[in-house]
């Protein structure tokens, strides 16, 4: 999330730096079960942003004092690879990734049902391997598919989308330039099947009207994204027609 001044023209004749219209998503690619060792995993790509997510668990949680007697717990880690950005990022946890690890956990927790797994943990590891804006929502979309493919009981999938503002134009799915130099950016995650918001972060300047408009734009895109997540998951469980007949 940024908001610095620049000479780059983010909107030219109604088109964005990557030729998109304000309300267009980038090309989205999704794939499930990309990490064989994990119980569930996914790879999601929004334009040039690529995130992987792997789920391990439910598994025993140590140290013991972290265990909950009546429910399993969800743990998340968001991390960016040093080579994922133009100027190498120092490896390891920084303040930004600490915060994103927390908010992504809170974004996923309304969805997962862990009451059947007392004393256990479900660990979600998110790795951004190529970054061009909207990394947290891309990682969340992958995490949601990974959780479902790991067979974790869920109230619904979590779909996420970024949105923001360039001067007076409201846009969705920010790329790196728009993230850095736009006037506002907002990350939204929701459970589309429940009409609930599970992640909401914004920085920049927005009027109330702009905020509600953006929220609706993001919602519309999340409804679109969740369909793609579902179709990727369905492919994992291909029904053999001859067998069922």
């Amino acid at each position: 999330m940024g908001g610095k001044k620049s000479d780059i023209e983010l909107l030219k004749g109604g088109k964005r730096t990557d030729k998109r219209k304000p309300e267009d998503l980038r090309e989205i690619k999704m794939e499930a079960n990309v990490v064989p060792n994990a119980d569930g995993s996914a790879r999601v790509q929004f334009g040039n942003t690529i995130a992987l997510a792997a789920v391990y668990g439910p598994r025993a949680l140590f140290p013991r004092f972290m265990q909950e007697a009546d429910t399993g717990i969800l743990r998340t880690r968001y991390n960016m690879a040093p080579f994922s950005v133009v100027d190498r990022k120092a490896p390891g946890t920084d303040r930004r990734s600490t915060e994103i690890s927390k908010v992504t956990r809170l974004a996923l927790s309304p969805s997962v049902l862990l009451d059947d797994f007392p004393k256990a943990t479900v660990d979600v590891y998110m790795e951004v391997i190529q970054a061009d804006g909207s990394t947290r929502v891309t990682a969340l979309n992958a995490a949601s598919i990974a959780l479902a493919s790991a067979g974790i009981p869920m109230r619904g999938l979590v779909a996420a989308c970024s949105c923001g503002k360039i001067e007076d134009t409201l846009i969705v799915d920010l790329n790196g330039l728009e993230d850095n130099f736009g006037n506002a950016d907002m990350a939204v995650a929701m459970l589309p099947d429940k009409d609930e918001i599970s992640l909401l972060q914004m920085d920049g300047l927005l009027t109330k009207e702009e905020f509600f408009k953006l929220l609706n734009m993001a919602k519309e895109k999340c409804l679109q994204i969740v369909e793609q997540q579902k179709s990727v998951l369905k492919k994992l469980y291909k029904v053999d027609k001859e067998m069922t007949e």
Binding site: V103, R105, L106, S109, P110, M186, M190, L191, K194, D195, E196, I197, S198, L199, L200, Q201, M202, D203, G204, L205, L206, T207, K208, F211, F212, L215, K219
Partner: peptide, 27 residues
Amino acid sequence: FREDDYICALQKQSAGSINFEEIKKFI
């Protein structure tokens, strides 16, 4: 909020979700 009614930052905390209808009331 800024003194001119602009919203300048938002952050959802805690594990529960928020309905779309409720957001208006929060704001």
